[in-house]
Design a protein around this nucleic acid. Sequence first.
DNA 1: TAATTATTGCAACATTGTTGCAATAACTAT
DNA 2: ATAGTTATTGCAACAATGTTGCAATAATTA
Lengths: 140, 140
Amino acid sequence: MRDIDNIFEKIKRDGHRLTKIRKAMVVILFAEKCLLSASEIRARLSASGLAADRTTVYRELGFLLEKNIIKEIRIADRKTYYEIVSPEHHHHLVCTKCDSVQEIVMGNHLKRQEDRIYKKAKFKVLAHSLEFYGLCRKCK
Amino acid sequence: MRDIDNIFEKIKRDGHRLTKIRKAMVVILFAEKCLLSASEIRARLSASGLAADRTTVYRELGFLLEKNIIKEIRIADRKTYYEIVSPEHHHHLVCTKCDSVQEIVMGNHLKRQEDRIYKKAKFKVLAHSLEFYGLCRKCK
DNA sequence: TAATTATTGCAACATTGTTGCAATAACTAT
DNA sequence: ATAGTTATTGCAACAATGTTGCAATAATTA
Ligand SMILES: [Mn+2]
Ligand SMILES: [Mn+2]
Ligand SMILES: [Zn+2]
Ligand SMILES: [Zn+2]
């Protein structure tokens, strides 16, 4: 069973419909793996012969976010992006020169910080977002 | 000499004009210390009897960003915010229940990670953004 | 195949952000 | 204090993103 089929299963199991657009959006996000904006997703739907209204794309993104199938990432000075929730938690290296983005896995070093935050500020961390900005291999 | 006067000095020294709106925006951002959106800033200008056009506020935010007097922060699912660049680098604890935001200073533990990123991915980190989401003292 | 209703498209709207251009006001030099 | 220079501002017009209500459509179930 492929990963993506698990997603489809889950959607159906929860009593939701597996429509053409919904399925296509998951396929697109799954194939890209990383960072697609709402308008990029819409463009790819069109390209694959599935013209969807802007409203539908946003509503569907809302649905997939609620289902925890995708996550939202807001990069400084750029658009809002979406990506498939992957089993491996990762962060992003954003090149400020060529706009490329790579992923980076960092172990659980933030866990210690989050414990410290709880002790120090009594704030219970449930999630975090961490992006690095700088120059990629080619641009530096 | 107050901190804020240094900002005014710097603006003038660099050959820019210290207009009413520019000055008021710095005062507002300086007083708040943390996270104000463009429309909130505009509202506060109005409240202090200085009605400024939306265009002007955005142009001024652009100017202050370029001058490195303020920085931009994009919080997941929320607006774009601005805050005065403070001498002490810090991150934010965002409560997902009551929307409150507190600051947290975390030493230079990310420095080590950034060195590792350079070795591993040949990506030269110049900046980062890190926000924590969860439940504040009151909401947990 | 028919019935149910989740999903979709459309129109209309709200908010954020940008650009060109003419009017204004901050600063400089007299 | 005044006049001149031009950075800054306001306005109009626009573009992009995102949201809502409602009627039509299509995915699923029986
Ligand atoms: Mn990613
Ligand atoms: Mn802050
Ligand atoms: Zn690059
Ligand atoms: Zn709270």
